[in-house]
Amino acid sequence: MTNHHQSTRGEPRVALVTCSAFPDLEDDDRLVLGPLAARGVAAEPVVWDDPAADWSAYDLVVLRSPWDYMSRRDAFVAWASSVPALVNPADVVTWNTDKRYLDQLSAAGVPTVPTTWVAPGEEWDLPADRGEYVLKPSVSAGSQDTGRYDLSDPGHRDLARAHVRRLGAAGRVTMVQPYLSAVDVAGETALLFVTGPDGLRFSHAIRKGALLTGPDLGMDGLYKPEEIAPRTATEEQLSVARRTLAAVPGGSDRLLYARVDLIPGADGDPVLVELELTEPSLFLGHGDGAADRLADAIVTHLARRPG
């Protein structure tokens, strides 16, 4: 690859954006360092809120694991808007860091988990169907502040109301979704896409086991240990994933990567639970050649930078 940056400044420099909890990157993200070096790209981790960071010194700034932004999303979005050469782009970050984007995707015809929203200060009317439900904030990651409630149980109903009040008191919007029990057997499927020469290309898929086992108690909730394994994506899952990506505002051709998380709906067909475009784990270690494909995607985006 030759471009203005390489010819005048030596090898391209790429910042891999992380947080203070992972100053040297999370283990899976480090898998891309060798492939990038082999392609003549100098990559280094940089903490997103480090005041000493000089973002203009990098030819590309790649969001990877800034996993502490959830409690200060406004600051994170403002930071993203100030960073040149950011991927995924800042407007995508703004849109994707609040899960109310699900309404927009649903309106575009993407099959999604049915979701209702409770704003701070609103009274929550419990669903007439006293089945199992998942409650979580609209700005969240990693199952934080997330709980599973059986609303046929009076104790769970009280805990669910307390969960909504707790989030509302913190100024957070609560999202309410039915718990789709097929996930207990089939798990969740994450489909990973990265840039290719002609736009986003499917890279690999993984299976995640069901995590939630009970209510969130204002601390860590109740979760099973995360179980990750490679998975072969079905044509139906790939079709839903591509429909989802086609509905991304501004087009998916600007994206470096995308992760589409699907679970079986009530009828067994795949439905979207989340579209991860900001800081998803890419599970590079679970797909043959995945780290090389991500490195190639980064090189492709470097080549797109103005010369």
Rank of each mutant, 00 (worst) to 15 (best):
A295W: 01
R304P: 02
G285F: 05
G250M: 11
E227Y: 03
T234E: 08
R231S: 05
A290V: 01
R231L: 15
D261P: 07
T244H: 13
P249R: 10
A303N: 05
V260A: 08
R304K: 15
L245T: 06
G285Y: 01
E236A: 15
P264Y: 10
E276Q: 08
L256R: 05
E226R: 13
T300L: 15
L275A: 04
E274P: 09
T234G: 14
R254C: 13
G289Y: 09
E276G: 07
T300D: 10
E227P: 00
G287K: 05
V240Q: 13
D253S: 15
I263G: 03
P230E: 09
A241M: 10
E235V: 13
L255I: 05
L262A: 04
A290E: 06
G285Q: 06
A303G: 13
L282N: 01
T278R: 00
E226V: 14
A297N: 05
D267T: 09
H301P: 01
L275N: 03
V299R: 09
P249M: 07
L282A: 05
P230D: 11
A229C: 02
D261M: 09
G265T: 08
A297R: 01
T234A: 12
R254F: 01
I298D: 02
L282H: 06
P270L: 07
S281D: 12
A295S: 08
S252K: 04
A258Q: 06
R304W: 10
V273M: 12
L272C: 05
L277T: 01
E226I: 14
L302I: 02
V271T: 04
L284R: 03
L275H: 03
D261V: 07
D296M: 00
A295V: 03
I298N: 06
P225G: 08
L294Y: 07
G285S: 12
R242P: 08
A303D: 13
L255A: 13
S281H: 01
L262E: 03
E227M: 13
T244W: 14
E235R: 14
V248R: 08
A303S: 13
P270F: 10
A233R: 11
T300S: 12
S239N: 12
V299K: 02
L245N: 11
R293A: 14
G287F: 10
D269K: 13
E226D: 04
H286L: 13
S281C: 14
D253M: 06
D288W: 00
T234Y: 12
D267L: 05
Q237R: 10
L294Q: 00
